[in-house]
């Protein structure tokens, strides 16, 4: 009986620590300049996190998962799309580990790999926002909201707020526009929303 082919293996799933490698932490170090080996495992990041109540993995665990090279779970996790990048974690981290930077990197990696976001509306919002900047150089809230509500099929979401905001001058029907648009467009290679380099 070869131990590796036994059906027993599908039931016992201890993490094989010696089979994990440090390539992901190396990748994070190279791309984000964040050395996760500095982590003291104290959990101050998770304690301070604004969104830990809806996170499936807290910031401390995310750093641990990088340490054990659990890329699959990292790219599929819900926390990736719930993180609001408030920076409370890195603000409090005694080792200065820039977790939002790691989150950004992982999000980019997930998009590049075509892994669907667990919160599609978040991804949609990101894309629309980038799209506006791409087209006009600046963000126009009215068109962003209209577009978002349309595409996320929440047609009447916050509709009662619209007229109030309009009459108070908060929503400008004429979108702001940057003069040298060619420069802005050249910043986006390739276009947002497309697969490939997101930035």
């Amino acid at each position: 009986m070869n131990a590796t082919t036994s059906p027993v293996n599908q039931y016992f799933k201890a993490l094989q620590l010696d089979e994990t490698d440090s390539s992901l932490s190396q990748e994070i170090l190279e791309n984000c300049g964040v050395d996760i080996e500095r982590c003291l495992e104290c959990g101050k990041c998770s304690g301070g996190c604004s969104n830990t109540h809806i996170f499936d993995f807290t910031p401390r665990k995310i750093v641990q998962m990088i340490k054990i090279g659990d890329e699959k779970r990292l790219l599929h996790m819900d926390s990736l799309w719930c993180c609001v990048a408030c920076h409370l974690c890195v603000d409090r981290c005694p080792s200065g580990i820039d977790i939002p930077r790691i989150m950004d990197y992982l999000r980019e990696k997930a998009i590049t790999k075509g892994i669907p976001a667990t919160r599609p509306t978040v991804e949609l919002f990101h894309n629309l926002m980038l799209d506006q900047v791409h087209k006009k150089g600046r963000v126009s809230e009215l068109y962003l909201i209209l577009n978002y509500n349309l595409k996320s099929r929440q047609y009447l979401k916050n509709a009662e707020l619209g007229p109030q905001m309009f009459f108070k001058g908060k929503l400008n029907p004429i979108p702001a526009r940057v003069k040298k648009m060619d420069q802005v467009r050249r910043l986006f290679r390739p276009k947002p929303g497309q697969k490939g380099e997101a930035r």
């Binding site: 009986m1 131990a3 036994s6 059906p7 027993v8 599908q10 039931y11 016992f12």
Partner: peptide, 10 residues
């Protein structure tokens, strides 16, 4: 069964 299988496998 997996429990027993693990033991008897070894």
């Amino acid at each position: 069964q997996p429990h027993l299988g693990r033991k008897l496998d070894s």
